[in-house]
Simulated assay, not measured.
Amino acid sequence: MPPLHGSQRVAVLADSQNLYHSSHSLYSRNIDYTALLDAAVSERELVRAIAYVIRADSPNEEEFFEAIEDIGFEPKIKDIKTFADGSKKGDWDVGISLDAVTLGEHVDVVALCSGDGDFSRLCSHLRHQGVRVEVFAFGHAASEDLLDAADSFVDMAEEQDRFLL
């Protein structure tokens, strides 16, 4: 990874659903959002940190929303959708992409905290615009297309004690 510069402006975008499902399916543990934010900013200038979350009426989720805000993330909350057949869906892919493109005009680096391969085209677009893209995810749960499209990748699985509670 090339050296990081203190003058770089960084936006941190955390796909909380992706991180939650990855950390729970692989390790049955929660993400340490303080460590994630510290690693993503890495002594550079933080412009904005957003955590994209889904409200699913599960226990303790309001406390989680407050906790990530106390850490320094702006929570963007969307209600889960339940369809007539009983299936449920909740994701922020379009919202994350729109925010990344908009913020890309004001930052040098987008730290994308997700392993979702749907963001590989977003990475390519941002890089074409001159924005550095750093992906933070668990290697076993991260899309190869996404990793190939990013400038750098931090495998959170290699530092479980740092990134997991």
Rank of each mutant, 00 (worst) to 15 (best):
L46I: 11
I50W: 06
S28I: 10
D38F: 02
R48H: 13
N30G: 13
E45Y: 07
L37R: 06
L19V: 13
A40N: 05
N30S: 14
L36H: 02
D32M: 09
R44I: 07
H24G: 00
E43M: 07
A51C: 13
S42N: 15
A40M: 01
S23N: 01
E45A: 12
A49P: 00
T34Y: 09
V41A: 09
T34F: 06
Y20Q: 01
S25C: 03
L46M: 12
L36F: 10
V41I: 12
S25V: 05
Y27K: 03
I50G: 10
A40V: 05
L26G: 02
N30H: 13
S22C: 13
Y33G: 13
A40C: 01
S42T: 05
A35M: 06
L46T: 09
Y20F: 12
L46K: 12
D38G: 08
Y33R: 08
I31P: 09
A51E: 07
N30P: 02
H24N: 13
Y20E: 03
V47K: 04
T34K: 13
R48L: 15
A49W: 08
S25T: 13
A40G: 00
A35L: 00
E43D: 11
D38L: 10
R29Q: 15
A51H: 01
S23V: 00
H24E: 07
L26R: 04
A35Q: 12
A39T: 03
A49H: 09
A51K: 00
D32L: 05
H21D: 05
S28C: 09
R44K: 06
H21Q: 07
D38A: 09
L36C: 06
E43I: 08
A51Q: 06
L19S: 05
I31N: 10
R44H: 03
E45L: 14
Y27V: 04
L26I: 01
A39E: 05
Y33L: 11
E43H: 12
S28N: 15
A51I: 03
Y20L: 06
L26V: 03
H21L: 09
H21E: 10
D38E: 15
T34R: 15
L26W: 08
S22V: 09
A40I: 04
Y33T: 11
E43G: 10
S23F: 00
L19F: 04
S22T: 09
S28W: 11
